[in-house]
Design a protein around this nucleic acid. Sequence first.
DNA 1: ATGAAATAAGAGAGCGCTCTCACGCAACGC
DNA 2: GCGTTGCGTGAGAGCGCTCTCTTATTTCAT
Lengths: 348, 348
Amino acid sequence: MSDPTFAARPTLEEVAARAGVSRATASRVVNGSDGVRAPLVERVRAAVDELGYVPNQAARTLVTRRNGAVAVVVAEPETRFFADPFFAQQVRGISKELTAHDNQLVLLLTEGVADYERVGRYLAGGHVDGALIFSLHDDDSLPVMARKAGVATVIGGRPGWSDAEPGPTTLYVDCDNRGGARDAVRHLLNLGRRRIAHIAGPLDQTASIDRLDGFRDMLPHIDPGLIAEGDFTPEGGSLAMELLLERFPDLDAVFAASDMMASGALRVLRQRGLRVPQDVAVIGFDDIVSVAEWTDPPLTTIRQDIEEMGRMMARLLLRALEPSATPGAVSALTPIITPTQLVVRASA
Amino acid sequence: MSDPTFAARPTLEEVAARAGVSRATASRVVNGSDGVRAPLVERVRAAVDELGYVPNQAARTLVTRRNGAVAVVVAEPETRFFADPFFAQQVRGISKELTAHDNQLVLLLTEGVADYERVGRYLAGGHVDGALIFSLHDDDSLPVMARKAGVATVIGGRPGWSDAEPGPTTLYVDCDNRGGARDAVRHLLNLGRRRIAHIAGPLDQTASIDRLDGFRDMLPHIDPGLIAEGDFTPEGGSLAMELLLERFPDLDAVFAASDMMASGALRVLRQRGLRVPQDVAVIGFDDIVSVAEWTDPPLTTIRQDIEEMGRMMARLLLRALEPSATPGAVSALTPIITPTQLVVRASA
DNA sequence: ATGAAATAAGAGAGCGCTCTCACGCAACGC
DNA sequence: GCGTTGCGTGAGAGCGCTCTCTTATTTCAT
């Protein structure tokens, strides 16, 4: 009963027989191509319903060379994938967009370099039409692999390299990290803060670099000691905050490159008896609502529409997959930078 | 260049030609079936390497009726899937086990009932060999759908019904919620606590019910007012804690049905100036390390090995998929209940 | 009415693979 | 020596579908 091979699925042939047409015509109806007369369409539709026909994807793929599936590849060197709500939201966006276009999402989690080879094989095996890659570090070989495997690719976040060789540009979706960081610092400046520190993310990721650059844009002559590197986790934020406080007990504002780190910083500030925002103003980045709204005090932050970025990644990939996209490449197949937005709550 | 149809993959035929054998023999080598003489094996292997041959999954599926893919279906009525690290860890476990057996993970996220139909079609379409279902509420129709679609299924967590009709039992993996809850209460009792409250999870989920039952096992004559229903979120935990404190200002212990809710309860306790564990002992459930170790004070809790449960779900499904499993069903195709373990930290 | 053009439907090849079956050839017993 | 067994290999069918090409039918201009 539960044997998957048991339930004899009806084939197109049977549908055609029941409708009294040829397999070709049945196929035409099923695939919605026009040029079939109404009464026949009706009959085929009826047969499909009665038999409960569902096309066999494998057979279809075999001839069309299209899978209707997209891989989401996640490099997870530090078990961070799911821990960070960031990815989760992005995957949701991707999933929504993909299913809206009848594509499936194949999740490829990697752990360690051994898995990379497996992923490479999988991509090369033509199981999926394209790949959405989250590669956390800029020396990551995943995007290179995908390119070699010949699968269309969109990367989550600006990759760490710029296109050297001509040819198809590397497609990616990222938010305006630098601009967002500038907005954050500007807000602190407007608040009259003068001793502003920055808790950066890991500096081998472009998001961290870009946010740091934005910070520096506004404060060109800043003492480098006011910049501490974290790791996007609350603990990392705590550690960085402690370091900063030790170096500059008089600082009056902190811009953290993520909400997670900001929440860690908040904890340290509270322990030290420093009031937020009176003594030290704190501002985060991401606007992970479940974090930012629940810190004490609620976190002022830079919002990026993460789910929408996921959707855009999927949409971009789907566009790249369209046959028409391949030749001229005149269409708008370019990286996408989404805007950010300052969300003022209580912490700054 | 990025055209997926462009890269002309070598076929088995070509491999065979290059190795000077028949397609059948090449297939035998590729699939590792014995009965091929060593020198030929060598030659075919060489040809595979030189050509960079990767089997075409679609063609293979067409004849074997096996996809090498498993769907992970997640009902997400309240956007909870990723927010809760619980699922994330389980998915990791699943992913590991699946890839270890060369199976792919197809992620099916659902939002609202409209998606259910889509999922049903997909499962019925024979795209996957089996399904792992996380259905949060016991009236969920997802498992029923899967059964109707004839795909082997394993459910995450005890389903809310018991097998009425004979036939294949409903397979699921769950931890010993009831036993774990008993352990938690026993620990509090051993600590000398006498006024023990319970923050339950949503009572339309079996996990919540079972934990509540375990609580009651140890305290049969408890005042029902000492039980408050939460929703597995920190906020829900806070609300429940406030309610409980209002009803019983003298309570000296709280057993929360999840770490998330416990962390919310902790916050309220701190705000009220109640010391943990001196005034009120708190104990959670799940042992989400990133939460339990970082609360103030660190949380005593009941551990369940979530990742391992994910692995077991995958393993169980894979076993159910083996042809040998279908007929006699003599093998151990039964639900799995994993043990829990008390982890003592500072909060109780 | 007749032929050309347009349109609808069918026939059939073939996608790349697995697997059954038939065949060839060595080793064995009589 | 011949028939028998057994093992290794090849031939070929066929999985369910799409799509091109061909054939049948209709429409319209002449």
